[in-house]
Amino acid sequence: MLLNASARERIREIYPRSQLSLQLSQAVRSMSATLRMKNPRSALANHGWAFAAVWIGTNALIATGLAVTNLSAQEAAAGRADQSIEVQTQFAPGVVTVIPPAPDPKETFDGPLTLQSIIDAHPEISWNTGDHPENAPHFDPRSRTLQEMLKQVVLRREIFCLEFSFKPLRQIYLDIPRPDGRMQRKLVHYMVYRVRYRGGDLRPAADDLNTPIYRRIESVSYNSRRFFPMMVLEDHETGKKFTDRILPTAMKRIAIREQISTRLHNSVDISTVKIPRTKDEDAPGVWGVATWVDVDPNLDFFSVNVFGLTNAFQQDGEGADAPYRRKALILNFYRPGDSMDPTSDRVRFGVPAYDDPTEQAYLLKKYGQRERLDYRWSFR
């Protein structure tokens, strides 16, 4: 049995030379005496020491080798957490489209607003009393009253924005489970994407905390952020919208097809992952996939609305009935093809260009744009 140098050193540590020699000598004497008593003239008795040495030495080496192997396995298991690394697939230039974060300083505040709901709920703060002529204070200006200050409120907040990258949107036929437990083969539209946190969050800054007058915007960064996505595919031909649907049976197939060697998240479990801050252009980021089913196979012009990349929002008006609009990344796509063999059709990123101004204006109207843009940020 052949052992390398490290194994031989380990054998010497486990079985010292003197102890191993003593065990071999005792075993040889015992076997030789037994053989002579049974057959004194036997050649086996005369050379029994040789067979005994080989037999005992072989078993000792085997036992020692197993001990060394088990010990090496334990050491490897103990250090596996430190030695293992995660290697991701490096794609060729142009395969992954990167959309840089676009935070806007104007998104850090709203106002001035009139908090009419508070004024209506507390009429006692008004100056409509007979003690003050023209309902104004005696010495201070009217703008210093609480009622007037509630009409000029500026709400400030901190905003962040994540970097979004994606591979070309593709189609695949998969078996989708139905409510009755059976499987149904359907055409699935999917988009594999990556998110990274670059830092650079924006927030209003006060030069003097005792006099909170916000005259500048400062940039801050944190160790990590989380991503709570919602992907909506909007068909510009029919006006229908399709929300991303979670398909556990599709994750492995898509990961193999798109050569994603790391874990691929859906739109729910990706929110449990902390996205670390990084400035490295080769940082792996966190990968996810959005899937849509029951989309018209004759789809030509459509967009994907990506919500959750930023916490910026707008409110139309005031009160409970005033709707909130979230900032979304709008990705425009078009697919020249038909319903025959849709998986072989290539989905192109951006708005197609036409030489005819009339056709171009008609197409831009479908996308809701005034000019050709591959992507844009919008409040929806």
Rank of each mutant, 00 (worst) to 15 (best):
P323C: 06
P323E: 08
Y324P: 00
Y324H: 09
R325C: 03
R326P: 00
R326W: 11
R326V: 05
K327W: 02
K327R: 15
A328M: 12
L329H: 07
L329F: 07
I330S: 00
I330T: 05
I330C: 07
I330P: 00
L331A: 05
N332E: 05
N332K: 11
F333I: 03
F333P: 01
F333Y: 15
F333D: 00
Y334P: 00
Y334K: 00
P336F: 10
P336I: 09
P336K: 13
G337K: 05
G337Q: 11
D338G: 12
D338M: 01
S339I: 00
S339D: 13
S339C: 03
D341L: 04
D341S: 11
D341V: 04
P342I: 02
P342C: 03
P342Q: 05
P342Y: 02
P342W: 05
T343P: 01
S344K: 13
D345I: 03
D345W: 07
D345H: 13
R346G: 00
R346P: 00
R346E: 13
R346C: 05
R346I: 14
R346Q: 11
R346W: 00
R348I: 08
R348F: 11
F349A: 02
F349Q: 03
V351I: 15
V351K: 01
P352C: 11
A353M: 07
A353E: 13
A353W: 12
A353V: 13
Y354V: 04
Y354Q: 10
Y354A: 15
Y354G: 02
Y354E: 12
D355V: 08
D356Q: 07
D356L: 05
D356G: 03
P357N: 11
P357G: 08
P357V: 11
P357E: 14
P357M: 07
T358I: 12
T358H: 11
E359R: 15
E359G: 03
Q360H: 13
A361D: 14
L363W: 04
L363H: 06
L364F: 03
L364E: 10
L364Q: 11
L364M: 15
K365E: 13
K365F: 04
K366R: 15
K366D: 00
K366E: 04
K366F: 04
K366G: 14
Y367V: 10
G368A: 12
G368T: 10
G368Y: 10
Q369F: 08
Q369D: 09
Q369A: 14
R370S: 14
R370G: 15
R370A: 11
R370H: 12
E371G: 13
E371Q: 15
E371C: 03
E371F: 06
R372P: 02
L373N: 10
L373S: 13
D374P: 03
D374M: 11
Y375I: 01
Y375D: 06
Y375N: 12
Y375R: 07
Y375Q: 09
R376P: 01
R376I: 02
W377C: 05
W377S: 06
W377H: 13
S378F: 11
S378G: 08
S378Q: 13
S378R: 10
F379D: 04
F379R: 03
